[in-house]
């Protein structure tokens, strides 16, 4: 068969492209004919390798903690997981431990069904207090630097909350200000920023 010639021309470098029936078994590695060389060295991560992780829980000042789930953007709006106690991690941003960019968490201040949400606690936090992100055996600690409110329509354009080019920082977002259900709910976002204390572990 002509196809076999084709396969031969590929020198076996691309397994699984032929149709000669030899396919159902993995391509046998061509045995080296040059004796049995010793193994190459395996490169290792330097001790200064940074750990990065997607958080699965957040611990606020005072010790209260809540689960964190990945949250995407749909039609321009961050899809914060439903449930007053659940917090969303924006999947387009930094991970904990990265050297640059904001790691963004957003959570409910309240919901119609459940009342006050987990991030209602952000209204009480102060600069200097600590926030910890965790995942399995990973953790990263941040120290709060600023707490401020911005008009909701200026969050993306003027607050820099989603900026990925600056130094690494944690940005916690919820809602605040006057509430008007007819006008889209809360007027403002409460934005808490925190800087990393050491490296993620």
């Amino acid at each position: 068969m002509g196809l076999e010639g084709c396969t031969a021309q590929l020198d076996g470098a691309v397994p699984g492209t032929g149709v000669d029936g030899g396919l159902s078994t993995p391509t046998p590695p061509s045995t080296p004919t040059v004796g049995d060389p010793s193994a190459a060295r395996s490169g290792t991560p330097a001790p200064s390798q940074r750990i990065r992780f997607v958080p699965t829980a957040v611990v606020l000042p005072g010790g209260a903690h809540a689960p964190v789930l990945p949250a995407g953007t749909k039609d321009g709006q961050l899809q914060v997981p439903s449930g007053a106690r659940r917090v969303g991690w924006w999947d387009g941003g930094a991970q904990a431990g990265d050297p640059f960019g904001s790691i963004v968490l957003a959570g409910h201040v309240d919901t119609k069904e459940e009342g006050l949400g987990f991030f209602a606690r952000l209204r009480k936090v102060e600069p200097g207090e600590r926030v910890t992100l965790t995942a399995a055996d990973r953790r990263a600690t941040y120290r709060i630097t600023t707490v401020r409110s911005v008009p909701k329509d200026a969050l993306a354009t003027r607050s820099g909350a989603f900026d990925q080019t600056g130094d690494h920082r944690l940005v916690l977002i919820t809602c605040t200000g006057p509430y008007d259900a007819a006008a889209g709910g809360y007027a403002d976002n409460l934005v808490v920023t925190a800087t990393a204390e050491g490296f993620a572990e």
């Binding site: 953007t73 914060v80 309240d110 919901t111 969050l155 993306a156 989603f162 605040t176």
Partner: peptide, 12 residues
């Protein structure tokens, strides 16, 4: 995102 809407109850 352009918008983060995290309050739907008004209780806060």
């Amino acid at each position: 995102p352009n918008l983060v809407n995290t309050g739907t109850g008004g209780q806060a």
